[in-house]
Structure formats: structure tokens, C-alpha cells
């Protein structure tokens, strides 16, 4: 190969080649099953062991049935409430800890140990956590009840897990507690990627830690925050393990999430695969719309920056080519 042929065009094919494994795995293990699910949503497939199905005369019948289903509506509401109650404190705490751990002026001791420990709740399985929290909030005897009575907060035992709002609150708390460590790790990674020159400049200008955080760190974290927001939104909309294992959607459907609803449609007795599939697709569309909104809201500046970056990259490649020549 002569140096003349080392043009960017000749490398472009590697962009395709290196993407092939991802695309193939996606097509086989995700796209095909989704397609299958989507098709089922338009059919009469229900009941056990059935493989033959026919398309419904009204193709949207299942979608309508799910959309108008009071339990589905409630599950959407619950999912939204639980996600918001978990995500807002989660991102706030993660940001606060990020600010503390990346503060160059006031270094905390044992930072490393804290970072490592904060991720740990994520290691333990959801089933274990469900059992432990069930016992913690036991009624009429249980550690939390004992504590409340000891501290004089309550006169008698409280049935936490039968109250709709405490049940939702506890699930939000579990989600918050399991995930803030991971969010913090990702956010710290984002902060470390900010150009140090920005911080140095701020230092020279005499900015306080607070000013640095709000005027440099936060705006620079936009992309990473978007990533966190979107992944957490998707994770939150799919929330299944804890609501299912902890209270099985109860009390009185207060912790019934969309995923638990889908599971119940398919497996709690009637094998309504078609309705479950329709609910899956509705969930997908909702997530796509919400994510789209997030992308749109946080979009403009990024797009500009991206273009600029692409220009820089092209420039660098040109320079490299020139250097080669």
C-alpha cells in the first residue's frame, strides 16, 4: 500500500466491519424477539402451549384492551411515581457526592473506601433485599416498628407494608439505595473527563467551590447526565424485581408496575400472551417518546458541539494525512 492510498475513505470500511458483531447480535437476540413480540400483539395468541394463531380482525384490539385496562393505567401511574421518587433523590445525592469527591480543595479521607462501599448494594440480589426489607418493616413485630416505638415516634405498631404510600416509598427507597452508587461512579467519570484547564481558569478567577460546581461541572456533565437520565428512565420503566418480589404489586395494587402488570398478563393464570405483548409494545413506545423528549430538551448545544468535534476530527485526520505525505 502506497502512502497515497492511506486516505480516510480506505478506513471507512472498518467502521462497518467493526460494527458487524454488534448489529448481528442485536438482530438475532433482540430485534427478532421484539419483532416476534410485536406480531403477537396483533394476534389472538393466548392459552398455554398454543403455537398457531391468527391475526385479529381489529388489529389494535389488544392494544385498546391494555390501554383501557384500569390496572394498566394504575401501573403506569405507579411506575412514574416510584421512578420519580427514586430518581430525584438518587441524582441529587449522586451529584452531591460527586461534588464532594471531586472537590480538589477539600479532599475527604477514605474517599476510595466510600466510593467502593456506595456501589455495594447493587451487588446483592433483589430477592435477598426483598426478604430483608420485608422483615425490617415487619408488623406487629419488626425492627423498624421497635425503633419507632422506642424513639416515641409511634405509640403502637404501624403496618407499613399495608399502607399504599409507605409501600411505594419503601420501594422507591430501595431503588434509590441500590442505584445511587452506580450513578455516582458514572458522574464522577464524567467530571474527570472535563478539561482541567476549565477548573484552573476558574481557580485563577477566584471562584468558590460552589460556583465551580454550578457553573463549570454541571454544564459540562450534560451528556453524562442525559445518559444517566435515559438509562435510569429505561431501568425505572422496566422496574420488576423489587416490586414483584417485595410486595407482589400490593397492597391494593399500590406497587404494581408496568412490568409486573405484563408479567401477570402472561403468567398469572390466563396466558394472555397477546395482551402482554401489546403491553410490551406500549411500554416501548412510551419509553421511546420520553427518551425522545429528553434528547430533544438536552439536544441543541450537544449537536453543535458534536459538529464542531467532527470538524476537528476531520482536521486532525487531514493533518495526519499531510504528515504522512
Amino acid at each position: 500500500m502506497g502512502p497515497k492510498k492511506l486516505k480516510s475513505v480506505s478506513y471507512a470500511k472498518y467502521g462497518y466491519i467493526f460494527s458487524i458483531p454488534f448489529v448481528l447480535a442485536f438482530l438475532i437476540f433482540t430485534a427478532y424477539p421484539i419483532f416476534y413480540t410485536a406480531v403477537i400483539g396483533f394476534t389472538d395468541l393466548k392459552g398455554l402451549g398454543k403455537t398457531d394463531f391468527k391475526f385479529l380482525e381489529n388489529p389494535l384490539q389488544n392494544f385498546e384492551a391494555v390501554w383501557k385496562n384500569p390496572s394498566f393505567q394504575k401501573s403506569l401511574e405507579n411506575t412514574a411515581i416510584i421512578w420519580i421518587c427514586n430518581f430525584i433523590p438518587q441524582i441529587l445525592l449522586a451529584l452531591l457526592l460527586t461534588a464532594w469527591f471531586t472537590n480538589q480543595r477539600q479532599k475527604l479521607r477514605c474517599q476510595g473506601a466510600f466510593k467502593v462501599l456506595f456501589y455495594m448494594p447493587n451487588i446483592i440480589t433483589a430477592a435477598t433485599i426483598a426478604i430483608l426489607f420485608n422483615s425490617l418493616f415487619g408488623y406487629p413485630l419488626g425492627p423498624v416498628n421497635d425503633l419507632f416505638q422506642m424513639l416515641g415516634i409511634a405509640d403502637g405498631p404501624t403496618e407499613f407494608l399495608r399502607d399504599k404510600w409507605t409501600a411505594k416509598g419503601i420501594i422507591s427507597f430501595i431503588q434509590f439505595w441500590m442505584w445511587y452508587g452506580q450513578t455516582m461512579i458514572v458522574l464522577i467519570a464524567g467530571v474527570l473527563g472535563i478539561n482541567p484547564a476549565l477548573f484552573e481558569a476558574a481557580e485563577i478567577d477566584g471562584a468558590t467551590s460552589r460556583q465551580v460546581f454550578f457553573h463549570i461541572t454541571l454544564p459540562s456533565l450534560r451528556t453524562i447526565m442525559l445518559f444517566t437520565l435515559v438509562t435510569s428512565l429505561i431501568g425505572g420503566m422496566q422496574m420488576f424485581d423489587i416490586p414483584k418480589l417485595f410486595l407482589n404489586g400490593g397492597p391494593d395494587s399500590a406497587t404494581l408496575t408496568v412490568s409486573v402488570f405484563i408479567y401477570n398478563q402472561a403468567f398469572s393464570g390466563s396466558y394472555l400472551y397477546n395482551r402482554a405483548a401489546a403491553a410490551c409494545m406500549i411500554l416501548f413506545v412510551i419509553i421511546a417518546i420520553l427518551s425522545g423528549i429528553l434528547f430533544y430538551l438536552l439536544r441543541d448545544k450537544d449537536a453543535g458541539k458534536l459538529k464542531k468535534q467532527m470538524r476537528e476530527l476531520k482536521k486532525a485526520q487531514k493533518a495526519a494525512r499531510r504528515a504522512e505525505a
Binding site: 390496572s71 394498566f72 395494587s253 401477570n264 393464570g269 390466563s270
Partner: peptide
């Protein structure tokens, strides 16, 4: 309502 929502009954 719960039965109607979740089962084919």
C-alpha cells in the same frame, strides 16, 4: 376489576 383486568374471565 382486578380479575377482569388480569385474567381471561
Amino acid at each position: 376489576q382486578l380479575v377482569a383486568d388480569n385474567l381471561d374471565v
